[in-house]
């Protein structure tokens, strides 16, 4: 009997290790490729571990394409756009979430309408937004992408924060209101500090989703704005495939996601299901 459970335990661990190898292999392969020379990534049999871990590919990638603004510009634009849409959606979203959680504004129908806007296929909203941005001359600007990303960030932020506010006991804010605090004061001085961990988690999720966004970046930008997610396919599509350089940009591009996975363990379930499943 004891032996059997040991066998089971061993089988469990072995299967999990194999599965983990499967799920991490592509990321690890890209990471290793980012250090390989051309002779190493175009070789048969494939080279698994590069001979030398230099940062040449990273330096080249940041300076590419030849106009000299490639990877570095992508990094800058991704940071501006992801931070911008996170800021707008968290500031407006936190107020709305608080109001919905505490005062039940609009009832269930209103909050479900907000959630449903998150489910729009991006390709369905892309065309009217494109024509709108074209009319107001916002194509190829950071602002256009901040606005577009806010569409998907805002419902997410409201729903996640609504859940966090609902879990706070209302007594503290009631006491503050009775002591003469304004509703805005009760929100900023009492409720907000208490949900800080949830607020940070929400903001990080919103940041990573905007950081990973691709379709809007593809359609609403040309030359002036180029996110990292745009640079990867534009280099893949070139006549020679610069795997080392693309892998370097790809590695830079996955860092926020990996940090999120490792840091926000407690909030992953909520964040990924918009609070539909509470972990």
């Amino acid at each position: 009997m004891k032996n059997e459970t040991n066998w089971k335990k061993a089988a469990r661990v072995i299967i999990l290790i194999i599965a983990l190898l499967f799920f991490l292999f592509p990321v690890v392969w890209m990471f290793l490729t980012s250090f390989k020379t051309e002779a190493e990534y175009f070789s048969y049999p494939p080279v698994f571990i590069p001979h030398h871990f230099g940062i040449e590919n990273y330096l080249n990638a940041l300076a590419m394409p030849p106009d000299g603004r490639g990877g570095l510009q992508g990094l800058r634009d991704s940071i501006i756009i992801a931070s911008g849409s996170t800021f707008v959606s968290v500031v407006t979203g936190a107020l709305a979430a608080y109001s919905i959680a505490r005062y039940k504004v609009g009832g269930d129908n209103f909050s479900f309408w907000i959630l449903s806007t998150r489910m729009f296929p991006p390709v369905a909203t892309a065309l009217p937004l494109f024509l709108l941005f074209k009319t107001v001359k916002l194509l190829d600007t950071h602002l256009a992408l901040i606005i577009a990303n806010t569409i998907f960030a805002l419902p997410f932020v409201i729903w996640l924060l609504k859940g966090f506010f609902e879990e706070l006991p209302a007594e503290l804010e009631e006491a503050a209101l009775i002591d003469g605090c304004t509703p805005l004061g009760a929100f900023t001085h009492v409720a907000l500090p208490l949900v800080t961990p949830g607020l940070v988690a929400t903001a990080l999720f919103a940041f990573v989703f905007a950081w990973n966004e691709f379709m809007f970046a593809l359609l609403f930008t040309r030359r002036n704005v180029r996110t990292l997610t745009i640079i990867v396919p534009s280099l893949v599509g070139g006549h020679e495939i610069l795997w080392g350089e693309i892998a370097a940009i790809g590695t830079i591009a996955v860092i926020p996601g990996i940090i999120l996975a490792l840091v926000l363990q407690r909030y992953l379930i909520r964040g990924l299901t918009m609070g539909a499943v509470k972990g």
Binding site: A19, L20, N212, F214, T229, V232, A253, I258
Partner: peptide, 19 residues
Amino acid sequence: LLSLFLIPVLIAPVVAGFQ
């Protein structure tokens, strides 16, 4: 382990495509 398993979910699909 769960955090490691979730890395694919949180990286850009475009980058996953490149991998």
